[in-house]
């Protein structure tokens, strides 16, 4: 048995430890407390509607009927639409900047792309109202209806304000996150890996496919998931373009509503306790969905990062 030695920490280090420990615990306490508070406030609504709250499509404050399904639907559809558009484009931007562009061009474009993340969401919303929605109404939606109208997603009257607008604006907003993170993890791929592929007679694209993307894939997944997280919680820009109507319609052109948007819009109008309680329950569900998606994202990142037996990537 070897003797155990205990390092005697100086007083300063002990204070530092206590200080940082209390900060770490503080964050945890805050989170649990918030969760509890939300649950407590939402309790009347939970007791009244039970599971029916998340399966009901009726949202009628006048008749005291509350169902969250339209909001859950609106949030999920716009977020996944955003992901579907932003993930390939963000990855493409990252590949171009990292592997193809001249270094000067790379610096300028990289900076501009990251600037997109700095624009306040209300500004995106204004752009959505005055530019994106009218353009969707007059050009994109009629075009989609004409060519892809046999799919229910692209049927109906072009309105401009709706899930398509919400998804598009979210896509623009999460694009810089995905591009910046993908670019960073791709820049971290050792040059040796690229040379290994090139020396075997790989073209540029084959080099990217064989050496760069597999090496960076768990980081890229992480970036996409971070983008999804941002899309799920985004409030202002979405509420300005989604149409704010609690309906579930198959068409992407149709107005809809999102969870974050309904909370922000109706909070001040919640004139009685059950109404308020229902809104808080929606917040609780949003919280839950984010947690669950993050859990699966972690699982995904972990499983793609594992690689073949006996070794791990990176």
């Amino acid at each position: 048995m070897s003797k155990q030695y205990k390092l005697t920490a100086s007083l300063g280090d002990q204070i530092l430890r206590l200080l940082t420990l209390s900060m770490a615990i503080g964050v945890l306490v805050l989170m649990v407390w918030m969760g509890w508070q939300m649950f407590d406030t939402a309790r009347p609504s939970i007791q009244r509607f039970g599971l029916g709250f998340i399966t009901s499509r009726v949202w009628d404050p006048v008749k005291e009927q509350f169902g969250a399904l339209p909001f859950i639907y609106g949030t999920l559809v716009t977020s996944f639409l955003a992901l579907l558009l932003a993930a390939p484009i963000g990855l493409g931007v990252a590949i171009f900047l990292n592997e193809m562009a001249e270094s000067r061009f790379r610096a300028v474009v990289g900076f501009l792309v990251e600037m997109l993340a700095a624009i306040p969401s209300v500004v995106y919303g204004l752009w959505g109202i005055f530019v994106l929605a009218p353009w969707l109404k007059t050009t994109v939606e009629p075009g989609l209806a004409k060519w892809l109208g046999f799919i229910p997603l692209f049927q109906g009257t072009p309105v401009g304000f709706g899930m398509l607008a919400g998804g598009l604006i979210l896509a623009v907003m999460i694009l810089p996150t995905i591009a910046a993170i993908s670019r960073e993890v791709m820049a971290a791929v050792p040059n040796m890996q690229r040379e290994a592929a090139l020396a075997l007679g790989a073209t540029k694209w084959e080099m990217i496919r064989v050496a760069v993307l597999p090496y960076a894939k768990s980081g890229i997944m992480g970036g996409i998931m971070l983008g999804l997280g941002r899309a799920l919680g985004e409030t202002m820009a979405v509420t300005m373009v989604i149409g704010n109507r609690p309906d579930i319609l198959a068409s992407l052109f149709a107005p809809a509503y999102s969870m974050a948007a309904v909370i922000a819009n109706e909070f001040t109008e919640a004139t009685y306790d059950l109404y308020l309680s229902a809104l808080v329950e929606i917040g609780l569900i949003l919280f839950g969905i984010t947690l669950v998606l993050n859990f699966f994202a972690r699982l995904l990142v972990w499983s793609v990062g594992r690689g073949p037996k006996g070794g791990s990537i990176v």
Binding site: A196, A197, A199, A211, P214, Y215, K217, P308, G311
Partner: peptide, 15 residues
């Protein structure tokens, strides 16, 4: 013209 590098560089995602 094949090449072998100074440091072994197998592809880590591959068996």
């Amino acid at each position: 013209v094949g090449m072998v590098f100074q440091k072994p560089n197998p592809f880590p995602s591959m068996s």
